[in-house]
Design a protein around this nucleic acid. Sequence first.
DNA 1: TATGAATGAGAATTCATTCAT
DNA 2: AATGAATGAATTCTCATTCAT
Lengths: 204, 204, 204, 204
Amino acid sequence: MEKKSVPSLVKDQQLILKRREQIIKGAVRLFIEKGFHRTTTREIAKESGFSIGTLYEYIGTKEDVLYLVCDAIYEEVTERLKKQLYTSGSAVERLEAAIRAYFTVIDSMQDEVLVMYQETKSLPKETLPYVLKKEEEMAAMMEEMVSACNQEGVFQFTDKEQKLFTHNLLVAGQMWTFRRWAIRKHFTLDEYIALQIKNLLKRE
Amino acid sequence: MEKKSVPSLVKDQQLILKRREQIIKGAVRLFIEKGFHRTTTREIAKESGFSIGTLYEYIGTKEDVLYLVCDAIYEEVTERLKKQLYTSGSAVERLEAAIRAYFTVIDSMQDEVLVMYQETKSLPKETLPYVLKKEEEMAAMMEEMVSACNQEGVFQFTDKEQKLFTHNLLVAGQMWTFRRWAIRKHFTLDEYIALQIKNLLKRE
Amino acid sequence: MEKKSVPSLVKDQQLILKRREQIIKGAVRLFIEKGFHRTTTREIAKESGFSIGTLYEYIGTKEDVLYLVCDAIYEEVTERLKKQLYTSGSAVERLEAAIRAYFTVIDSMQDEVLVMYQETKSLPKETLPYVLKKEEEMAAMMEEMVSACNQEGVFQFTDKEQKLFTHNLLVAGQMWTFRRWAIRKHFTLDEYIALQIKNLLKRE
Amino acid sequence: MEKKSVPSLVKDQQLILKRREQIIKGAVRLFIEKGFHRTTTREIAKESGFSIGTLYEYIGTKEDVLYLVCDAIYEEVTERLKKQLYTSGSAVERLEAAIRAYFTVIDSMQDEVLVMYQETKSLPKETLPYVLKKEEEMAAMMEEMVSACNQEGVFQFTDKEQKLFTHNLLVAGQMWTFRRWAIRKHFTLDEYIALQIKNLLKRE
DNA sequence: TATGAATGAGAATTCATTCAT
DNA sequence: AATGAATGAATTCTCATTCAT
């Protein structure tokens, strides 16, 4: 599936990329602080470093900004993850490393991840699938590693169990940001990672 | 901690309760459909069955409606849960029954639960703690049952592990609504419950 | 000219008078504090000691309250003044005593007088003449005393000069409240009275 | 004391001045007709010749309009006065000319002056001093001329008497507008000026 | 007579979007 | 391409007034 294209009045593709990067950077800051709805387009323009008129040269509606932002965040999370994913060692060792990397990436982007999840529902309807796509991609990457463990006999998962395991694993990461108010009373990041890994990798 | 009191111009306490019920009912419907920010106070009034003026006899701000709604949903979830919580049998049996009940309640209120989690961040700052309080209360209820299992030797959890276990359990429930777009491709509710329980209750 | 009659749903004339007194008392307090426009009918009702429904049993519109208030204040000023007006002595002595009395009365009712003058323009159009009537009555009283002085040869005023003199005299009193922010930097009430009298009574 | 600055979203300072002039002109017309409180921001926008949105590009609150209006009126009165103030001749002649000028200016701006005095109390609290400042400035100008007369032996005023004289003089002017309903029954402007001057300049 | 809940027109203000320069 | 002034629909909230009890 291709990316949803956001309309722009500007021709120069290079410039579009550059300006949209500015927009995303500015908007993320603002969305983190006050959320999508409480942020005005004027503020986004200002924070991006240009005028409201210019902003609208690069987007069609305010919602487009949200799409750009969510897309960018997902992109970065998956990108960063991919880079750290393929280590050597046994299947379990690689899975463990992947989980660790995943949790770490999420922690280092907690505010962004939070925005992404909280504002997802405000995305323009047509774009939602494009964003969820990314999530599925990430899930697929993880599931592959789980599958490897399964094949090496580390787990004896049915298909469904494997799906669920992967799902729980992803959720555990997201929860580190989403429920931080509850979690951080009890765990440091390292503790959280260690315990979740211990829990996930325990066999029957 | 007492409930946050929402200001009303009306004196009749009975009536306040009745009208607020109407408000909550109407608002939930709208929030489910379009979210808090996209719902106008006029729509809330209309959906509640009275005029905008009357709405403001029973609340101070639009945000008060959100508080009423979130509070009511949490209340109902915990209420329903409590009713089903204390069955007989061994500690594990009771825990399993509780988990089952929890997942079932959440499923039957999925839209409401979704609203609650997605709009929490829009709550007036002073009221957030009052709402989170409910969540903690529920967590405490669950943790107690986990603790019983621990004491009966079903688990050998450290304190932290017990906390994490409870946390994961609660999250597993919420995810049934929060990530339904992903989960329901693969599981029915019963499957989801069965597998999560199997996973949670497996010993080392 | 008769008083403008304010419509009431209640028959008992005695009761009407009593309730309106309450209304006036309450409203004056509020008008002094926040002015007519910023005061709500609800507040007036509360301050008067009864419900909004009852308030509307005794008035037709919010503006009626303003009329009642202005009328009452004028009434009281003239009443108080009349009581102190007719002393013995020569015409000048009597005039001087009257001026003194006038300034003193105004000082003791400064807030009320201020309200009266500041809100006059908000009076329902038909009632304005009724209120100004009081002012003219007061002016007439004063002018009579000035006229006596004139006849005794204290002044040699033409008709117009006599009018103007009286007018200036009345204004001097009102200014004690109206421009108090400027005047009180420089004068105490006694100084102000003394100097104005000296100035007014000086002959050519 | 600097002028209070009213916030604007527009950058072009020239334009701000132009638009605010439009606003003031439109608002004065409306305030004269119906007073500040009965005038809506929409009416102000319309009368100013632009949309409600544009109005709010040049002011922060409705009250800002009142401040702009009052400030502008005071400004114009003092400006006009200053221009006519310094004639030649003896101190008394100059004072007399000043008084005449003052009364004439006020007469030619009677509606505006009326607005200014009647709505002063509705000014945002922080701005009141800025407006009164203008009044004091005008008083100072006048007092200077009175003082000159005093030095030339026209009067034998103590400091306080001089203050009071100036004050009475200013008030006499304002009353021409403020109590016009009463005054104009008896005097034309010329008569009023002549008699007040005669009265003011009479020596002991 | 007294009450106070209900009403809804109307008010101030905001903000996404457009468009002339 | 960039700017930012202009627009006006939409939004929240208020408050004088009514009317059933």
